[in-house]
Each structure stands twice: as structure tokens, then as C-alpha cells.
Nucleic acid binder design. Structure first.
Lengths: 139, 139
DNA sequence: AGTTCTTTTTATAACCATTCCTAATCCCTC
DNA sequence: GAGGGATTAGGAATGGTTATAAAAAGAACT
């Protein structure tokens, strides 16, 4: 069984960017991450291993990766940008109580809005209450 | 032909809030507004008539109205919250070039995600290029 | 009109996420 | 091992939003 390659680090390399220790760490934190972390979340994780990595570097790397299309920016209305390394077609569910973000398989197709609007991306966000928070408020 | 009533001001009254001159103005700016203004946009408009109205009052009023459900918060990833007095089911198209927000009739239905996720609201945002910006980049 | 109680507004400070700036550092190549 | 480009750290700056506290405005009652 061989180790799955980290697509994020691969893309950094492919695009001619340098694999620095900072980027390596950020790539590892993101790889396969299903928690939709904010920049601060990523920085916290990275800091556990390399406490000197600055938040500015984290922002810069995340923005580069998003611009390259290897990760996705995700806005759910909580004032911070979240990042999702899963760029396959899927939507998100946000719990209005605990604010956790969940992946949902349902994806909205790119609609045809006529030639006045050339659609290149569709993002659906569903709001509601997750299992845990439903149970909690029921008692 | 009689004047259409302003649903926003009506709701303020119905909920027991006072109709102050400030709220009156904000209500009038919002009523029928299709431009999806940010708090700052609203404040600018209001200031043309009453220059002493503070931005804090605008924020407080907009948040109250959104919490009451007469207007809708709208996040499109530009760092600021936009407000939409149209609360009927519809989606939004955001131009990646000029950042203008357009209404689109298409609306996504509330999906059934099983009992683990109780969905109460669905929001779809489409990104792309509007007519004007398509023309602009073509030449 | 005056008193009291509540709501609302204002102005300013505080807050937080994000970006900017600049000097220092690293890596490559000559 | 010196120059040059890319990258980083750290802190200052920015911009949207909210908190705070004091003043103003209303309403109810006398």
C-alpha cells in the first residue's frame, strides 16, 4: 500500500512555486481536511508544529492555492473565509446553532441564465440544525 | 391610484418598534430597492437627506429588520454583508468582474438531507460575468 | 408642564479578519 | 561567496462591524 500523494503540494510544485517548509505544513494540514478551516484554524494547526509561521504567510499561501484552484474559498456568513480542499462538486450545510459546516453530496448544476449572464460557478449553502443541535434543543 | 404601502415600515410598527425618523428613512431607502446595498450604501443614501444619522443606527436597524425577517442578509464573499428587501424565493448572480449583484428567478428548493440535517433555508449564489463585463473584455 | 421609565440614537472606542509594508532570510546561479 | 529573485516574519494599517456609555426622544401618567 503506497502513500497517497498530496495534490496540494504537487500543484505548488507544478506551478513553479517553491516547496518551503511553511507551505509543506499548510499543505499537510489541508490535505484531506473535511473541517472547512478558516485561516486562523490553519494557522493554529501549523503553529503546533512550527510556532514561528506567521499568519500572513498562511493567508498568502491559502490565497495562492485558492487562486490556483486547488482549494476552494467558502463563505457561510460568519465573517470569516473558510477553505475547502475538496473541489469536487458538492454543497454545504451550516448549522445555525453550532456553526459547524458539513459537506452534502447534493450539488446544484450551473444554470443557464441566458447570454447576459455567463455562469462559471454555482455555490449552494443550506442552513438549518445538525443532529447534535436538534437533540440538544429537544429536551 | 393609491400609494403602495411600505411593508418594512409596517413591520416595524407591527412588532412594537417605534417609527423614528431614522428608521423611516432607512425603510424608504430599502423599499423596493433592487441594488442589494451594504450597510455603508444605505448610510450614504440616508445621509443625503439626514446627514447626522450615524452608521451604528443603520447597522442596528438593518440587523433588526433582518432578524424580523422583513429583509434578507446576503453574503457574496466580498467582505461585506448586503441586504435585500426582496424576501421571495430567488437566487443571486454575482459578476466576478464588476462585483454587481443581480437577482435571478431560479431558486433552489429546500433539499431533504435526512433527519440528521433539518434544513430551514437554502441560498444559491452564481458567479460569472454580466453582459456589460462580457462585452468589455471581448474587444 | 413635570416626573419617571423605556427606547432609541449618537459618537467613539474596540474588535476581528485580512492585507500591506519592509527588512531579513533563503535559495539559486554565476 | 556575491548578486538577485522569491519568500517569510512581524507588526502596522485597513475596513467592516459591534460594544459601550451618555445624551436625547417618546410615552404614560399626574
Amino acid at each position: 500500500m503506497r502513500k497517497r500523494e498530496n495534490i496540494i503540494l504537487k500543484t505548488i510544485k507544478d506551478k513553479g512555486l517553491k516547496i518551503t517548509p511553511q507551505r509543506q505544513l499548510i499543505g499537510e494540514v489541508l490535505d484531506g481536511n473535511k473541517t472547512h478551516p478558516s485561516a486562523e484554524d490553519v494557522h493554529k494547526k501549523v503553529s503546533e508544529i512550527a510556532p514561528t509561521v506567521s499568519i500572513a504567510t498562511v493567508y498568502k499561501t491559502l490565497n495562492s492555492l485558492a487562486d490556483l484552484g486547488v482549494i476552494q474559498r467558502l463563505d457561510v456568513g460568519d465573517g470569516k473565509t473558510h477553505f475547502d480542499p475538496d473541489i469536487t462538486a458538492h454543497s454545504h450545510f451550516v448549522c445555525l446553532n453550532c456553526r459547524k459546516i458539513f459537506d452534502v453530496a447534493t450539488s446544484v448544476p450551473l444554470p443557464d441564465l441566458g447570454k447576459d449572464f455567463k455562469v462559471v460557478r454555482a455555490q449552494a449553502v443550506y442552513y438549518g440544525y445538525c443532529k447534535e443541535c436538534q437533540d440538544q434543543t429537544e429536551e
